[in-house]
């Protein structure tokens, strides 16, 4: 979303009050620096006050504007590896593709296997390989949008790298983060990885068809998730048997409808 890659000669807010001044919250010994020897560049203090993620957040805001203007519902799907994200997606797509335009951005460290699985369902998918990176960032998603060109008023799934830690901090411009937790993972994941469950608006408790074979305590899991994030909504679901899929599809359509409202 930044025109020519080189990239993002964004607006850095430079503050012009670069003064030396006393601080009360921390001490630095500039005694010596104040005796400026001629010819030596003196040390001085520069106020920055910038969010470390400011750059990502600017790209995210650009993406969000892009989605807003086009009535696109963008969802950032996050989970550990192997939670069943891609299967959930392919099942979701096969049930919705006749009534909605859908596109997918796939993030993985390596391979285009997931994008291929999505394309097999007949919807456009773009694979981003993060290489050594552990998460998608808003800048890469912005470029993916230029290539993928999702249709107006469509549903865009961004399947993040399987990782319950890093993607929580990186806003991609999505309407919601949806965290997928499978019942094979243990009910204490929400408190073990609180950042992600705190950042998500919806939690899908996946693979519920396996519950009879496991000691997974669903109620405890839901309680942990709400403890970390009282606002989180939870949908138990099995992408395999289809249990709970109706609620998920209704949620998607309702959210898409909200996104499609033409605000002035």
């Amino acid at each position: 979303m930044c025109g020519v890659c080189g990239c993002g000669e964004g607006h850095s807010h430079s503050h012009d009050h670069d003064h030396e001044h006393p601080h009360d919250h921390h001490d630095h010994d500039h005694g010596a620096e104040h005796t400026h020897a001629p010819g030596l560049s003196p040390k001085r203090m520069v106020q920055i006050e910038q969010d470390i993620l400011a750059k990502n957040n600017r790209y995210a805001a650009e993406n969000r504007r892009y989605f807003g203007e086009r009535g696109i519902l963008a969802l950032n799907l996050v989970s550990s590896p192997g939670s069943g994200k891609t299967t959930l997606l392919t099942e979701t797509i096969s049930r919705l593709k006749d009534e909605l335009d859908i596109a997918v951005i796939e993030g993985d460290q390596q391979t285009a296997r997931d994008a291929e699985r999505i394309r097999a369902t007949g919807v456009p998918a773009l694979q981003i390989n993060t290489g050594k990176g552990c998460h998608l960032d808003a800048h890469r998603v912005g470029h993916a949008l230029e290539t993928l060109q999702p249709k107006d008023r469509s549903l865009l799934f961004i399947e993040n790298v399987g990782n319950l830690v890093c993607p929580s901090a990186f806003d991609l411009g999505e309407a919601h983060k949806v965290v997928i937790l499978s019942v094979t993972e243990g009910e204490d994941k929400p408190i073990k990885y609180p950042d992600m469950f705190h950042a998500a608006d919806l939690m899908i408790l996946n693979k519920t068809d396996l519950l009879p074979y496991l000691d997974f305590d669903s109620e405890q899991c839901i309680q942990y998730a709400k403890q970390v994030n009282p606002r989180i909504k939870i949908l138990p679901l099995s992408a395999k048997t289809g249990e709970g899929m109706d609620s998920w599809l209704r949620w998607l359509k309702a959210e898409l409808e909200l996104q499609r409202i033409d605000y002035a």
Binding site: M45, Q47, I48
Partner: peptide, 19 residues
């Protein structure tokens, strides 16, 4: 657990000592 985080989630660069 009806808590809404409203502080202590920041990561900011405050200032620099430069030359």
């Amino acid at each position: 657990h009806q808590l809404q985080v409203n502080g202590g989630d920041q990561m900011r660069i405050k200032e620099l000592e430069v030359e």
